[in-house]
Write a protein that binds this DNA or RNA. Structure first.
Length: 937
RNA sequence: GGGCGUGUAGCUCAGUUGGUUAGAGCGCGUCCCUGAUAAGGACGAGGUCACUGGUUCGACUCCAGUCACGCCCA
């Protein structure tokens, strides 16, 4: 007789090989067909609401690893909250306006772009954005992300655009909006002002020049500069050879120079270089001389403060007096400590200019060409004029040193060309109006930042940020709802006018701004203060960050299933400057509070060497590639397994080890399923109090595991979930409990109490695990659930995490001790195996001896020990010598020898009872009983 | 240059208020098993806790500085 037939070996159709790339799309389709998201919303009516507000990715290009990480984290948060008992509506969104799309569209149109009007460009941009919304939607769904994909929010939808205008109106009402002439980063190629977020710093080669400005004060003025009495005469005598020296890397801004700025807290000296006197900061004097390759015959300490605010210098090549000003932004890090100041071309220059009443001179137009104000350079492109300016300085003998310098310089984020700073008329959001900055800082203190350093990061940024430049000179965006009076040139942007635009946009979308005549865009009878009634539309659009920055109004307030404020925002660390901040500012200004209760940030995806991924470096890995080869599940698990609060260093090398872990979890589930093929929980479940102690130990252990994992989910520490899951499967289950309990499952009679008890535990383990893994391993959990006997729901997401697993602390402590002994025994077994005395552990008889607590515990459990050790026999032997002490447990003595009796052909245990039955000579007594019952039954 | 981070075995991570020979899983090596089998089990070898200095009886843990990498800003 083949006794194998009488065993209850595992049986399951659950495939060992996951084959994820092929199987996953079917799940995605099934979730959609079954309307899983909608069903979950219905099924969770009445539960506490948990709102994670989706930050809109830009509708341009395919989903990359960064966007995938972000959405997967959100999905894991939402699913874990769902299964923890919340209702979790998720409305995904896209950011649709803005320069990147417009730029791309224009590039694709090539020379044809010029022939098109703004409206036609906008239509193409809209089509472009729609295309990528659809692409990305499919890609996010493919990742297993659950949400209201059929009704996302789009910043280009008419309703959303109307909300953008509405918030702008509320800001106008609150007095936050103003027009101003301000230097801004300006791209001469794109012809637009850039927001801080659109500026990229990278290396650029600029001229680096030292220029002297002649002192034009009187001899008396010069003498007054002396700190020491004895220097007065020299200064007075050499007044026509006295100069202040500046250093700059932007010679083209010199035509706009109006002042030289010194630091009030620095010491200055006049260096005697070949008879000329050069004023520089004392701390930079040596470095300056080294640059010139000269030495100074004398260093005369000077104090220029008496001349503060006076026009005591002469422009090096223009007929213009240059003012001496003081401000503490001047540093002694580089240059001369005397700073060339052009209020139209630098932010700090502008600030100093305001303080001293200087005009905002900007002799440069939007295309980067000098205007007539720049004299001989008129019509020249600024960067190209650099060399001529340097040459002119040389001619005038005011150039002290000129060379090329490679340094970090602002560039346009789209066209990658170097930017200039240029004063233009722009629309601004005033951060210091109505104590907004203070109130925003207060709100920051009330938000939970995860990880906690997020607080300091955004706090410092908000504390120091400048006003927000809201206007862009582009076509693809929401127009600034303002009208210029043709008669007087003043702007009309009062609440009533804007409200009208809101209504028009809600109905027709913002294209109406370009389609409709101005008369239809202003309310009837609108008049300027000057009495004028004829208007023209403002040509600016709003910064795309403004679009995203009002999503808390346009989405949270507008969608019935959501609420304001959100419970959580989840984005990458760069958003402290971006979305977190713009959302905060618009919310505090218009709603008086932060739009989020908590903010979770994750790092960025870097390459193997922790370097940024970029197309130019050729180190970009696409999610699509990973999905195609290994499945989305692997990407989900990978992102879950790392500590995302730091940047994630991604390499394909991470995948192979991860697959091992995945297989461990999958195979453990498969083993559990395989042993439950004949188990019906409704009929066969054994009650906890009737379970053997080992089984209760297992349930206690599972309860602890369950608690730890749930806690990790609460803290959004998914990497702890993954590690605990793998460890639990590998250590507690595979290597320990399941290994031990195999004997019972396989050899006991199918319907016997010991087997049903083990199956009860297996069932609980599987039921616990399938729920705990679902937020991360969504596909696998769903697949496993299909095979779970007696399942009551058709999606794992209709189940909640458990909290009802039984614990028994005293029992648990005893068994933990027994497992320590087990470790000592397996070590001894291994030694015996190495010495060729046994092969399988069942070949062994283990002799034990111990005194004290361990001794009495082992005495109590002596009958259980063979099972626990997976050996054939365990005997108590007081004669074991001290040398037999275990290295792991000195109070325990162990000896291993071959087991007694014969190997039972059925259960493979050695026993002296083998042969006790004439019908089954190869079997032990235990197996004889089972087999006889089997053949009769 | 400033603000905020990150740096523990080949990989991914633990390491509680500073306290005995720094842990886990995977991988690796050797062995066992062939009734979870493109599976399973055992044992073992791997770390100057980025570096330097300091505080302390004692520091991966606290302080200061340096280096590398990242984000944000100048």
């Amino acid at each position: 007789m083949d006794y194998k037939e009488t065993l209850n070996l595992p049986k399951t159709d659950f495939p060992m090989r996951a084959n994820l790339p092929e199987r996953e799309p079917a799940w995605v389709q099934e979730w959609q067909e079954k309307r899983l998201y909608e069903r979950l919303i219905e099924a969770t009516a009445g539960r506490p609401l948990y709102v994670l507000h989706d930050g809109p990715p830009y509708a341009n290009g395919h989903v990359h690893l960064g966007t995938a990480l972000n959405k997967i984290i959100k999905d894991m948060v939402l699913k874990s909250k769902l299964m923890a008992g919340y209702r979790v509506p998720f409305v995904p969104g896209w950011d649709c306006h803005g320069m990147p799309i417009e730029h791309q569209v224009i590039r694709e149109l090539g020379s044809g772009a010029r022939a098109l009007g703004q409206l036609e460009i906008r239509q193409r941009c809209r089509a472009y954005a729609e295309k990528f919304v659809n692409i990305q939607r499919a890609e996010f769904k493919r990742l297993g992300v659950l949400g209201d994909w059929e009704r996302p929010y789009l910043t280009m939808s008419p309703k959303y655009e109307a909300q953008i205008v509405r918030v702008f109106r509320e800001l106008v009402e609150g007095g936050y909006i103003y027009r101003g002439l301000r230097p801004v980063h300006w791209c001469t190629v794109c012809g637009t002002a850039l927001a801080e977020a659109e500026v990229e710093y990278k290396d650029h080669v600029s001229p680096s020049i030292y220029v002297r400005f002649p002192f034009v004060g009187s001899a008396e003025d010069a003498a007054a500069l002396a700190r020491r009495e004895e220097d007065r005469a020299v200064l007075a005598e050499r007044v026509r050879r006295l100069f202040v020296v500046i250093w700059t890397t932007t010679p083209w801004t010199l035509p706009a120079n109006l002042a030289v700025c010194l630091n009030p807290h620095l010491e200055y000296v006049a260096l005697d270089v070949g008879g000329d006197l050069y004023i520089v900061a004392e701390r930079l004097a040596d470095a300056f001389l080294a640059e010139l390759g000269r030495t100074a015959a004398a260093r005369i300490p000077v104090d220029l403060k008496p001349l503060d605010g006076r026009d005591v210098f002469q422009h090096p090549f223009l007929d213009r007096a240059v003012r001496l000003v003081f401000e503490s932004h001047v540093t002694a890090d580089a240059g001369t400590g005397c700073v060339h100041t052009a209020p139209g071309h630098g932010y700090e220059d502008f600030a100093v200019g305001q303080k001293y009443g200087l005009p905002v001179l900007t002799p440069v137009d939007g295309a980067g060409r000098f205007t007539d104000e720049a004299g001989v350079f008129a019509g020249r492109l600024v960067f190209e004029a650099n060399d001529d300016i340097v040459r002119l300085l040389e001619q005038k003998q005011h150039l002290l040193k000129g060379e090329q310098l490679r340094h970090s310089y602002p560039h346009c984020w789209r066209c990658k060309q170097p930017l200039i700073f240029r004063a233009t008329e722009q629309w601004f959001f005033r951060v210091d109006h109505a104590r907004l900055r203070e109130r925003a800082l207060q709100q920051i203190n009330g938000v939970m930042w995860i990880p906690p350093w997020g607080h300091d990061r955004i706090y410092n940024m908000v504390e120091h940020r400048p006003d927000w430049c809201l206007s862009r000179q582009r076509a693809w965006g929401v127009p600034i709802p303002a009208f210029r009076c043709v008669q007087c040139g003043e702007f009309v942007f009062d609440p009533a006018t804007i409200r009208h635009v809101e209504q028009v946009f809600a109905e027709h979308g913002s294209d109406a701004w370009y389609e409709l005549p101005t008369a239809r865009l202003v309310p009837q009878g609108t008049r300027c203060r000057c009495g004028g009634s004829e208007f023209e539309k403002d040509q600016n659009i709003l910064d795309v960050w403004f679009d995203a920055g009002v999503s808390h109004v346009a989405v949270l307030e507008e969608r019935d299933e959501l609420k304001w404020p959100a419970d959580l925002y989840v984005e990458a660390v760069d958003q402290h400057r971006g979305w977190f901040q713009v959302s905060l500012l618009t919310a505090v200004a218009t709603r008086g509070a932060a739009p989020y209760r908590a903010v979770l940030t994750h790092g960025l995806i870097l390459d193997e060497a922790a370097k940024k991924m970029s197309k130019s470096l050729g180190n970009v890995v696409s999610p699509e590639e990973i999905i195609r080869q290994h499945g989305a599940e692997v990407l989900r698990m990978l992102f879950a397994s790392v500590d995302y609060t730091a940047d994630v260093s991604f390499s394909k090398g991470l995948i192979a080890p991860l697959l091992e872990s995945y297989r461990k979890i999958r195979n453990t589930c498969r083993f559990l399923l395989g042993n439950l093929y004949d188990f019906d929980p409704a009929r066969h479940r054994v009650s906890v109090e009737n379970l053997p102690e080992l089984d209760r130990w297992m349930l206690h252990r599972a309860a602890e595991f369950n608690q730890r994992v749930r806690r990790a989910y609460e803290l959004f520490q998914f990497h702890l979930v993954v590690h605990q899951m793998v460890n639990f499967c590998a250590v507690d289950l595979s290597a320990l409990y399941l290994d031990i309990v195999k004997d019972r499952l396989y050899t006991a009679a199918a319907g016997s109490y010991p087997r049903r008890a083990a199956q009860t535990v297996l069932y609980e383990l599987l039921d616990t695990m399938v729920r705990l893994m679902a937020p991360i391993l969504s596909f696998t959990a769903e697949e496993v659930l299909r095979y779970v006997p007696g399942r009551s729901v058709d999606s794992v997401f209709l189940l909640d995490f458990r909290d009802d697993l039984p614990r028994d602390d005293a029992l648990f402590a005893r068994w933990e001790k027994l497992f320590e002994v087990r470790a000592a025994v397996t070590k001894a077994l291994e030694e015996a195996r190495q010495a060729d005395r046994i092969g399988h552990s069942l070949d062994a008889l283990v002799r034990l001896y111990a005194t004290g607590g361990i001794g009495s515990l082992l005495g109590e459990y002596l009958n259980e020990l063979p099972t626990v050790f997976i050996v054939s026999q365990v005997e108590w032997d007081e004669s074991l010598p001290p040398e037999a002490a275990s290295p792991l447990m000195p109070e325990l003595r162990i000896a291993v020898e071959p087991a007694r009796g014969e190997k039972c052909q059925r259960c493979w245990n050695y026993s002296e009872s083998v042969g006790c039955s004439a019908t089954h000579p190869g079997l032990c007594r235990r197996c004889v009983e089972v087999v006889e019952a089997f053949s009769h039954g």
